[in-house]
Amino acid sequence: MDKSSNGKRSKAIDVNRFTLFGAVTFILVLVATYMSLVAAPLEAVQGVHQKIFYIHVPLAFIAYASITVVFIASIAFLTTKNPKWDRLARTSAEIGIISTTIVLFSGSLWGRPVWGAWWSWSDARLVTTLVMWLIYMGYLMLRSLGESNNQTAKVSSIIGILGFVNVPITYFSVYLWTYLHPLPTLQSSTERPESSILMPFLWSFLAYSAVIILIGIVRNKIEKSSDELETIKKQNQIR
C-alpha cells in the first residue's frame, strides 16, 4: 500500500501531468497517421495496403514486449511477493491482449487484399500470435474469475511464465510444420524496409507506444484505487 493521501496539491499535479501526457499522445497519433497515410510514399507492389504495416508492426512489437514484461514481472512477483509486480504483470497482460487483438485483425485485413486470404495457417507468426492471444485470454480469465488475493496472483504468475516460455516453441514448431507442408500460399512481402517506410514506422511506433503507456497509467491507477477501496472497506467491515 502506498501513501494514499498526499493532499490535494499532488493530486492536482498528477491530473495535470496526465492531461499533458494525454494531449501529447493524441498529437503524436495524429502526426503518425499523417506520416503514414499521407506523407509516406505508396509502396510499389502492395500499394495502399502496405500502410496497414504502420499499425500492424508497431503493435506487434508492443504485444511481444508486453508479454515479456508479464514474464519478468511474474518472476519478480514470485520471488519478492511484492504486489506491485503483480499489478505490473496484470496491466501488461491486458495491454498485451489489446495490442495482440489489433495485430490479429490488422494482419487479417492486410492479408485479404495482399495474400488473397484472411488467414493462413502456414504462417508461423500468425498462428503463434493467435496462440499467444489464447494463453493470455486464459490468464486474464483466471484473474477475473478468481478472488483478488495472493493465491490468484501466484497462480497467474506461473501461467504468465509458462505462457511466455511457450511462445518460441510454438513459433518454431509451426514454422517447421509449414516448412514440411508447403501450402499453396504466400510468403509475406514485407522485406527490409527503406527509409521512406522507416520514418513513418518510427512515428507510429512512438505514437502507439504512448497510447499504450497511457492505458497502462490509467490501469495502474485503477489497481491502486481499488486496493485503497478494499482497505477502506476492510477497515470498516462494509460489505
Binding site: 496462440v131 499467444m132 489464447l134 494463453i135 485470454m137 486464459g138 490468464y139 480469465m141 483466471l142 474469475l145 478468481g146 478472488e147 493465491q151 490468484t152 497462480v155 501461467i159 509458462l162 505462457g163 511457450n166 516453441i169 510454438t170 518454431f172 514448431s173
Partner: peptide, 18 residues
C-alpha cells in the same frame, strides 16, 4: 481456484499446442 474445471482446458490447450 474456484474455476479449475472450466479453466484447465482453456489454459492447457494453447500451452500444449507444440
Amino acid at each position: 481456484t474456484k474455476s479449475r474445471e472450466t479453466l484447465l482446458p482453456v489454459i492447457l490447450l494453447p500451452l500444449l499446442l507444440p
